[in-house]
Design a binder for these strands. Structure first.
Length: 303
DNA sequence: GTTGAGCGTT
């Protein structure tokens, strides 16, 4: 069995994507997750019983049912579909967050007509959902609009919908985007990187990547050399990283402890950037920081 | 009194 592709889809009715197998006929979970970030497994509909069946997953490797992938379309499993142990609830909710339940943030509205008022904005955006706040940015002296403003919705779904389309406001096409401005008080600085304590020397970056993939897209794994019994894992989504902090996870039978990765202190540019957010680099109010610091100082200096 | 890609006085 070699150079095989199996068809995988997000949902039974979605268009499948072909995923390559390994030489031994297995499929790596990482191959699936490369196309479907956050995927933690596969399932398929058994043609005989018409029931959904799970695909065997061992150490990040998916095994063909009856040693033959056949011509079926396999469906991606995400962690939120799994029954989870209590101590994994935080991680599961992290994925829920990743899959839609998120705090809203201010959106910048670009291209407003000069005449558009805040009331106009509110009237327009209320047609999409409940509006918390609108602003039109103006010249302080003249009071003239600068042609852009901000809006914030109650529901995250509304925000998603509004970002996805263009808007005709008072006769001009406008765009709503996530601002690239600095993290404000409503959007605290959050690391996408976690500190993985109590690692053993036989854990490889690949294995850590395979393991943490189940919680969300992993963008980096770093194991300091020489061996220092900890590692760093960076996720694409900071909320996944944050939700894992404080967890004790079992990797290769070993209980590792997850905590916040302290920002590096040997980079002047980062120090400058973090200055805006306070001395620690993170916003106040993170109860888990203490445990995190203890861990870091106990093990080693972050470098 | 103008303008048309951008990024928010408090």
């Amino acid at each position: 069995m070699s150079e095989l592709y199996i068809r995988v889809a997000e949902d039974e009715n979605e268009e499948p994507m072909e995923i390559p197998s390994e030489d031994d006929g297995t499929i790596l979970l990482s191959s699936v997750a490369a196309q479907f970030p956050g995927a933690c497994g596969l399932r398929y509909r058994n043609p005989e019983s018409q029931c959904m069946r799970g695909v065997r997953l061992v150490e990040g490797v998916l095994h063909a049912p009856e040693n033959d992938w056949g011509n079926l379309v396999y469906v991606v499993n995400y962690p939120k579909d799994n029954k989870r142990k209590m101590d994994e609830i935080d991680a599961a909710s992290a994925v829920k967050v990743k899959r839609g339940f998120q705090k809203t943030s201010d959106l910048i509205v670009l291209g407003l007509p000069w005449k558009t008022s805040e009331q106009d904005l509110k009237d327009y955006f209320t047609t999409f959902g409940e509006v918390i706040m609108v602003q039109v940015k103006r010249d302080l002296k003249t009071g003239n609009s600068k042609g852009f403003g901000f809006v914030r919705f109650t529901e995250y779904e509304t925000q998603t919908k509004v970002i996805a389309q263009r808007h005709m406001i008072d006769g001009r096409w406008c765009d709503c985007k996530l601002p690239n401005s600095k993290a404000g008080p409503d959007e605290p600085m959050r690391s996408r990187k976690i500190f993985v304590g109590r690692c053993t020397e036989d854990m490889t970056t690949d294995e850590l990547r395979q393991y943490f993939m189940q919680y969300g897209e992993v963008t980096d794994v770093f194991i300091p050399k020489p061996f220092r019994a900890f590692a760093f894992v960076t996720f694409a989504d900071d909320q996944v990283a944050q939700a894992l902090c404080g967890e004790d996870l079992i990797i290769k039978g070993i209980s590792v402890h997850i905590s916040n990765a302290e920002p590096k202190h040997n980079n002047s540019r980062q120090m400058m950037d973090r200055g805006r957010f306070g001395a620690g680099g993170f916003s106040q109010g993170y109860g888990k920081m203490t445990a995190c610091k203890i861990n870091i100082y106990k093990h080693a200096r972050v470098s």
